[in-house]
Design a protein around this nucleic acid. Structure first.
Length: 506
RNA sequence: GGGGCUGUAGCUCAGUCGGUAGAGCAUCGGACUUUUAAUCCGUUGGUCCUGGGUUCGAGUCCCAGCGGCCCCA
């Protein structure tokens, strides 16, 4: 710092609080804030125009002569957060970060003059500043903005994380995502990729004539999936409501309404456990196409995955969670029964054989519907083996109450699930549009299934819509968070959700 | 719900056999007009997650709780 006699700040009032604790770390910054005010600088800044993204400035720097020169390069204006601060006497080097990248600033006392130098003396790690100056290379060959003017934009009152290790504690990374975004390796890039993936999905669908719509998130009946809903209440109407667990039934109503190709990218809520692959609220894509079937949806799924991978900058072939995945279409297609036979050796057509295989693996069979047992067996044995991508097709009908049955075999439903790296990524049907059969299936609670495990929830309004006539259609659901997980090689769903759920901290 | 690991300075981490707390970064003071995790000298900073217990003595051992991570159901 400057000598006390030079400082116009109330340094005489500077508290003699102990230095180094959390409180006094903040106090040191507040002291500088007061000094800035005394210098006539607004520590909270204002509009700062004509900046260029740092990545663009760096691109400009590529074409410059590499010999040290701080006087002839183009003048540039950048703004961002101070990530590193190195002082060498009357010379200060700053690593400045904006949304696009980082660049070094050099600020000399002689170059900016004594008044601006007083401001420089008040800078801390984490402060946000704007700078203008010639672009060039320093004596050590680093691309540098040689600042002739500095604009203070915002004071940071908190100490940033360790400048080398960044924020490591996973709890802090999630609770203080803003810090994780600033300091975490690849964190911002991952969430940018998420945004690009969602853009790509919209692009694919709108190019095919799909209309983006929004269904209600507050519903009377939580239908369209097997999950326990969150319960809430509308005061003015004095009625119980649930948060939606799926998008399906309202999008199908829109098929009845003649919109023919609709999709929704939306949040759904399931009142279930938290794990590296589950968050109580997550984002789903559902798309419905009149006059299509589940084969139509396989083509659409491939198109979406290829486009999304490209948008995320993910390679076509990659390793994730111990699986090797190749996204080159067409994806493998294999029937549910064939896979079950391959992996377990049982005869999928014979309930006794399936039951024996299930029992051998400790799966309860007594009093349970054979298709439910079969489904448990499939989950326990086949899923992990599916590195994929593979379309698992033709499911046991009893566990698919919203799906059209095969014309020649009512025990098989025209459904597929897409597996990648042992994880279910997409789920699609040839949609059931027979209102009478749909009503019957809603009435049928399968033996061995708890309420929240069943999709059979009566929705009389939906049945009435079907009675008005829903065209034959294919429908598709994709879990966006899981898609982003594997396209960004993230091991946990919490790595791709900006603000995952947390217990309150003290 | 069951099990394992974990919680120490603002951040990243040590802490031995139970003997009243350590480092780096950050802070503060000083030197430095070419640094880049700058460097050098000095300085400051602790509810050892919380509450009990054992003990002459607990960051350390025991019990319970809280938070986090992972595995299983």
């Amino acid at each position: 710092m400057s000598k006390p006699s030079e400082s116009p700040a109330p340094s005489a009032d500077a508290p003699a609080t102990p230095k180094g604790s959390g409180a006094s770390l903040e106090q040191a910054r507040r002291d500088k804030l007061e000094r800035l005010k005394a210098l006539g600088v607004d520590p909270w800044g204002h509009r700062y125009d004509d900046t260029r993204p740092i990545v663009a400035v760096r691109a400009t720097g590529e074409s410059l002569d590499r010999s040290p020169d701080d006087t002839t390069g183009p003048t540039v204006r950048v703004a961002g957060r101070i990530m590193l601060l190195r002082s060498a006497g009357s010379l200060v080097f700053i690593d400045l970060a904006d949304r696009s990248g980082r660049i070094q600033l050099m600020i000399g006392k002689k170059q900016v003059g004594p008044e601006a130098w007083q401001i420089i003396k008040c800078l801390d790690l984490g402060d946000i500043v704007g700078a203008e100056g010639r672009l060039g290379y320093s004596k050590t060959g680093e691309l540098t903005v040689f600042a002739t003017g500095i604009e203070f934009l915002t004071k940071s009152l908190e100490t940033p994380p360790d400048k080398f290790h960044g924020l490591v504690d996973p709890e802090l990374k999630q609770r203080m995502r803003y810090l994780d975004l600033i300091h975490g390796e690849g964190v911002r890039e991952r969430f940018v990729a998420r945004s690009r993936i969602i853009e790509a999905i919209r692009r694919v669908l709108t190019a095919r004539g799909y209309l983006e719509v929004e269904g209600p998130t507050l519903q009377e009946t939580a239908g369209g999936a097997a999950a326990r809903p969150f319960l809430t209440h509308h005061n003015a109407l004095d009625m119980p409501l649930v948060l939606r667990i799926a998008l399906e039934l309202h999008l199908k109503r829109l098929l009845v309404g003649g919109l023919e190709r609709v999709f929704e990218l939306g949040r759904v809520y399931r009142n279930e456990g938290v794990s590296p692959r589950h968050n109580p609220e997550f984002t789903m894509l559902e798309a419905y196409e009149a006059y299509g079937d589940y084969g139509t949806m396989m083509d659409l799924t491939e198109a979406i995955l290829v486009e999304a991978a490209q948008a995320a900058g993910a390679p076509t072939r990659f390793e994730w969670m111990g699986h090797t995945v190749d996204l080159t279409p067409p994806f493998r297609r294999a029937t549910y029964d064939d896979l079950l036979r391959e992996v377990t050796g049982c005869d999928p057509a014979d309930p006794a054989s399936v039951g024996a295989a299930a029992s051998a693996r400790g799966i309860e069979t007594a009093g349970r519907h054979p298709d439910v047992v079969k489904s448990d067996l499939f989950e326990a044995t086949v899923e992990d083996t599916l590195s994929g991508p593979v379309f698992v097709i033709d499911y046991p009908a009893a566990v698919c109450p919203l799906t059209k049955r095969k014309a020649d075999n009512p025990a098989i439903a025209e459904r597929f699930e897409l597996y990648v790296a042992g994880i279910e990524l997409a789920n699609a049907y040839t949609e059931l549009n027979d209102p009478d059969l749909q009503e019957e299936l809603f009435r049928t609670q399968l033996a061995g299934l708890a309420d929240e495990e069943s999709m059979a929830r009566m929705d009389t309004d939906f049945i009435r819509a079907l009675r008005h006539g829903m065209p034959p259609a294919g429908g598709l659901g994709i879990g966006i968070d899981r898609l982003v997980m594997f396209l960004t090689a993230a091991p946990s769903i919490r790595d791709v959700i900006l603000f995952p759920i947390h217990r309150p901290h003290q």
